[in-house]
Structures are given as C-alpha cells and as structure tokens.
C-alpha cells in the first residue's frame, strides 16, 4: 500500500513521540489494531472470497476488542454478535452459493493503468487523511476520567430510548425495508415471464 508507505514516517514519529509504551492499554490497543490491519490487508488481497471473508472476521473481532479498550462494552458485544456473527454468516452464505469461481488473480494483469491510478488516488487521500488525523488530536488522549458505567447497556439504552428514539425507530423501519427489498430482488420471476431479457 503506497498510502501506508507514505504515511509510515508520520505514524512512526507519532508513535515514538508518545513515549507511553509502559501503559498496558497502549499495548492492547496496538496489538488489536495490528490484528485489525492484518485482517484488512488480507481481506483486500486474498484471491478467494472465502479467505477474504475469514480475514474480515478477524478485523471485525479485533475492532470489537478495540471498542472494549475504548470503553464501549455494549458496542463491542454488538460488533461481535451482529457484524462478526450475522452479517458475516450472510456473506459466507452468499459466497458459498454464488462463486464456483477459481479465484481472481488479483486482477493486476487487466486494467493495470486504471488500478495504478486508483491506488495512487487512495495513497494521496490516505496521506492527507493521516496528516489530518495525526494533528487533530494533538495533545489530547483517551485517558480522561469517565462517568461510571460509560458505554454499558444501561447508559446507551438511556441514550437511545430518550433523545434518539426517532432515529432508532427509523433504523428499524429501514431494516424492515431492506429485508423486503432483499427478498424482492432475489425472488425468481414468476413462470411465464421471460427470465431476464438479455
């Protein structure tokens, strides 16, 4: 990844300057963060969609651990249950039922120019994004004291069912619409109508 190369200097300087490596939270953060990055790279580079999906599970579970480190215990549970559980099972189900393919050869033989341009664009964007991210939080750290029970089921439930009830209900309607849409899209056309006129 060119973005990783370009920004590694920035990143490492930020890592060195922090000088907080005696802290176990820092170690846990970067252990889980490294796992998440490894899984992300695996997801993008694997040929076989099944392997990519399993690497994505690694990333999602590691992100769940990061949520725990960041005091978001309810979200960590949701991440593992919904993402690494339900969504990934859906993905694997579709992968198994759809692709009898032998696996794509990373595709760098075809459309090389377009892909290089795309990667360069990602590199530029990533460089700028990292620069912004590494300067925006200057000085602050996530070690401030928190109210008790921050991010647990009770506090998040209070948040959702008081001020943000309407968005929450809208999301539930959205989920219903998505389920109906998924069924409607994948339903075979009734017999008699031409099956796909192309």
């Amino acid at each position: 990844m060119s973005s990783a190369l370009m920004s590694s200097a920035l990143m490492s300087s930020a890592l060195m300057s922090s000088a907080m490596w005696s802290n176990p939270v820092q170690w846990a953060f970067w252990l889980l963060g490294g796992l998440a990055l490894l899984g992300a790279l695996g997801t993008v580079t694997r040929r076989s969609p099944v392997q990519a999906a399993l690497f994505l599970v690694l990333t999602l579970v590691a992100t769940g651990g990061l949520f725990l480190v960041l005091h978001a215990s309810f979200l960590a549970a949701m991440q593992v249950l919904v993402y690494a559980g339900a969504v990934m099972v859906l993905f694997l189900f579709v992968v198994m039922s759809v692709s009898h393919t032998e696996g794509e050869t990373l595709g760098l033989a075809q459309g090389t120019v377009g892909k290089l341009i795309g990667l360069a664009a990602v590199g530029v964007l990533g460089h700028q994004l990292l620069r912004v991210c590494l300067t925006v939080g200057d000085g602050t750290s996530v070690g401030a004291a928190l109210p008790g029970g921050f991010g647990d089921v009770r506090s998040l439930g209070r948040w959702i069912f008081s001020r943000y009830l309407l968005p929450f209900e809208a999301i539930s309607v959205l989920l219903l619409v998505a389920i109906v849409a998924a069924v409607a899209i994948t339903r075979r056309p009734p017999r008699g109508r031409a099956e796909g006129e192309g």
Binding site: M1, M11, A14, G126, G137, V142
Partner: peptide, 16 residues
Amino acid sequence: MVPTSQVLGLAALLFC
C-alpha cells in the same frame, strides 16, 4: 493512555 491521534490514524489506515 492512547493518544487521540493514534486512534484516528488507525481508523484512517483501515478506511484507506
């Protein structure tokens, strides 16, 4: 504790 910039940097790397 973990600096804010590192959390954001990790998120930016994953996003890219």
